[in-house]
Every structure is written in structure tokens, then in C-alpha cells.
Design a protein around this nucleic acid. Structure first.
Length: 400
DNA sequence: AACGATGTGGGACTATCGCT
DNA sequence: AGCGATAGTCCCACATCGTT
């Protein structure tokens, strides 16, 4: 598309921005445990692969190494990235740490463990045993060279692609600027995954079709509020929330964080309990529901506007536009996702296109839903177009 | 021809509100 | 106060359009 070419330099500038964020241990622990609650064998006998910045700094590696036996892993593979500012800071292996050892550019390495036992004889198996094991077994770690296109440890490098292909489940926090590419690679290789991303990924034109096709969904935990991530020392602290701990380590609080996965979990089998339109209008906890064009038909989509996820009516048989955060509560047995009204993702059934003569910003209005109030066009923020499953069963005749 | 105004895409964005 | 949920805003740098 010409517009994309036009904005190429703009996108390059975007892509160059910082995105090195290190996930907190508790966030990983809570999420993984939610899968175990649904199916204790989710990870049993599996090869788990974590692309990291440094296995010994990464809480992904720490969590899976420390819980290797509890989860029943077959193998844990972790790679570090040649170019990460934190890689090498805590490494055990001087040979992977060039120069005087003080934050020189480290070489990337792959670490592979296939068992965890009490190496130090202290009666427990923990991360220290893993470190000891790796020190004693050089074969468990290999340097990653990368190629002339990608640095060692880059998920796009041939070595990492090979490791990914051997893995059953990929668990990591990829750079958000490369989220589309990362997901595309996972889908291409048919991998199971559990990765961190942003809510707005729903609206990405590459991601939404996967959501619609039930090939990716939201994880079990983290559905609102901020999450805290460690960032490199050089990171500019101009985000809304940040702190520096007593050791001078920087953290940033990020809004809109979500887990993205194709592993099944309990939350997506919980049904939303719903009321009729009339009851919603009367009893909604949202006092302003009446002023929100609730259940009005869009002027440009064949669907009704539902301003809050918990105001979805149980007595509407057609298409409904709901906030994108509906996905936090999406149960695929209860609802079917038909489309989205946002930017270039206007895959809902259009009933009308706007022209410049109609309204200013007609481009946006053509993508987003519009409700007409008197002579005013009221543009509505991005909406998922959904309908009750019971409707599609009737419409399509058969359904699994 | 020169110059200013406008459109463009999408985001590790950000603000705000209500509830517990 | 903290959490959960909804609904936005604004900015990047360049191409192109419109006006002088």
C-alpha cells in the first residue's frame, strides 16, 4: 500500500525505540500456575524454550529452572541475546564475557538443561543447583554466532529458529516492536506459546485475524492495571510510573500489559452472566449507560453498540459491537468474533461508507463505528463485533 | 516556483472513572 | 489506595496537496 511506503521512515523511527523489558517473577509464576490449575500436565514432558536476554538474569529461566521437576519438563532451553545491555552482568562464564568483565558486549549463548537435581547437596533443588550443573557441564551451553543479518540470540537468527522448532512451548516476553513478527514465526512453526504483549495487539491487522480464527487468545491473569518491568540502566524514565530501587535498578510501570497464548486455561471457559437489554438499562452499574448510545444501531455497521462488556445483552440475536477489552472475558463457546471496527481492520459487515462531504475525518469514521445522534455523527472507539454462539449454530447448521 | 498546510499509522501510549 | 475497565490523545517525519 502506498501509504505504508510513505510512512516507512516513520515506522523505522518507531522500531528503533527502546523495548527491553524484564518480566517480574511473580507475574510469570501466577500465569503458569493458572494453567496448572486447569491442567496439571500442561508442561509435563514438554520442551520449553525461553528467548531471553540472559538466562541468569531472566525470571523466565529462573522460574522454569526452579520448577523444572514440579512441572515435569523434558527440557528447558534458554538463549541470551548478543546486544542486550544486561546480558553478561550476572553470567557465570567469563568466556562469554569479553573485555574486563564490566558490561562489555557479551556473546550470546544457548543453555539447555534436561534435569535438575540437588547438585550442591543442600537438600533442595533450586537455581543454584542449575548454575552448578551448568558450570560442571560445558556441553549444556553453546555460543550463538548469529549471521550477518541477525545477532546471536536474535529470535530470527537461524540458530534460534532451529531451537524454536525443537521446542513444544515458547514462553517469553518478546520486544513489543517485533510482536507481530514474533507471533508470525510462532504460528508458522505451529508452536504452543505463552508470551507477553499489549492489549492494543487486538487491533493489529496481523494479530486480529488470528484472534478471530481462534489461533491466539488472552492469558489467564493480568487483565488491567499496570505491570512493573525492570528496564536497562540507560532507559529514559519518562513513562508515567517508574521507580529506582536501593541498588539503582530501574523499573517502569506499563499499562495495557497482557499475556497472549494458545494454551487452554480455565478463565476462557467461564461464561459471562448476562441480562436482557431492558434489565441492563435499568440495573447497569454504569450510571451513564443511557448516555452511551447503548444498543443503538451503528450508522455504518450492521450491529448494535454495546458500551460495556458487562452490558452485553442476552436477548440480541444479531451482531454487537463491544469494547476490545471484551477479549479479557471471551469464552469461545459462548461467543463468536465476527470482526473489528478499527483503522484498517474494519472486517465487520459495513452498511455504509462515508465521504469527505459527509464528515471531517471521514477516514477514521469509515473504520470505526458511528452512531448518529440528531445531526451529529458520534464516532465510537474500536469495537469487536461479536454475536452469541447460539445464533451461529442456527445460521451455519453444524458446529463441532 | 516556493511555501505552508494537511494526511498518514499506530503505539513497552496515557487519562479517567467507578468499585471494593 | 489500589484495582479493573473504558476511552481515548498525540506525536513521529515525510509526501503530497493547495495556495500564494
Amino acid at each position: 500500500m502506498a501509504a505504508q511506503v510513505k510512512n516507512r521512515s516513520l515506522h523505522k523511527a518507531k522500531a528503533a525505540k527502546q523495548d527491553e523489558f524484564y518480566t517480574q517473577y511473580v507475574d510469570i509464576q501466577k500465569e503458569v500456575e493458572a494453567y496448572l490449575e486447569f491442567d496439571p500436565d500442561t508442561f509435563r514432558g514438554k520442551v520449553v524454550y525461553c528467548n531471553c536476554d540472559d538466562p541468569f538474569e531472566s525470571n523466565f529461566f529462573k522460574y522454569f529452572a526452579a520448577n523444572f521437576n514440579k512441572l515435569g519438563l523434558k527440557k528447558l532451553v534458554s538463549t541470551s541475546y548478543d546486544g542486550s545491555p544486561i546480558a553478561g552482568q550476572g553470567t557465570l562464564f567469563p568466556e562469554y564475557n569479553e573485555g574486563n568483565g564490566k558490561r562489555q558486549k557479551p556473546k550470546a549463548l544457548a543453555v539447555i538443561i534436561d534435569h535438575v537435581k540437588d547438585e550442591d547437596g543442600d537438600g533442595a533443588t533450586d537455581i543454584n543447583d542449575v548454575k552448578l550443573f551448568l558450570k560442571r557441564n560445558k556441553a549444556a551451553r553453546t555460543a550463538l554466532k548469529g549471521n550477518n543479518k541477525y545477532a546471536g540470540g536474535d529470535f530470527r537468527s537461524p540458530e534460534c529458529i532451529a531451537l524454536q522448532k525443537e521446542a513444544d512451548i515458547v514462553v517469553t516476553n518478546p520486544p513489543f516492536s517485533l510482536f507481530r513478527e514474533y507471533v508470525a514465526q510462532l504460528v508458522e512453526h505451529g508452536k504452543k506459546f505463552l508470551i507477553i504483549g499489549n492489549v492494543q495487539a487486538i487491533t493489529y491487522k496481523e494479530i486480529f485475524p488470528l484472534i478471530k480464527a481462534d489461533k491466539i487468545w488472552m492469558g489467564a491473569t493480568i487483565h488491567s492495571g499496570d505491570r512493573e518491568f525492570r528496564v536497562p540502566d540507560h532507559y529514559p524514565l519518562n513513562a508515567a510510573g517508574w521507580r529506582v530501587d536501593e541498588n539503582g535498578v530501574k523499573y517502569i510501570r506499563v499499562k495495557g500489559v497482557r499475556w497472549w497464548t494458545n494454551l487452554d486455561h480455565g478463565r476462557r471457559h467461564e461464561k459471562l452472566s448476562l441480562m436482557t437489554k431492558e434489565d441492563n438499562m435499568r440495573f447497569s452499574k454504569h450510571k451513564e449507560i443511557k448516555g452511551k448510545a447503548a444498543y443503538d444501531r451503528y450508522d455504518n455497521y450492521d450491529a448494535i453498540e454495546v458500551p460495556f462488556t458487562d452490558a452485553i445483552p442476552n436477548d440480541h440475536e444479531g451482531a454487537m459491537g463491544v469494547p476490545i477489552t471484551f477479549l479479557d472475558r471471551y469464552n469461545p463457546d459462548q461467543f463468536e468474533i465476527l470482526g473489528i471496527t478499527d483503522r484498517d481492520n474494519n472486517s465487520g459487515v459495513k452498511t455504509k461508507e462515508y465521504t469527505e462531504a459527509d464528515v471531517p475525518n471521514f477516514g477514521d469514521l469509515n473504520r470505526r463505528g458511528v452512531v448518529r445522534v440528531g445531526n451529529e455523527y458520534k464516532p465510537i472507539y474500536a469495537r469487536l463485533i461479536i454475536r452469541h454462539r447460539r445464533c451461529s449454530r442456527h445460521a451455519k447448521g453444524t458446529k463441532k
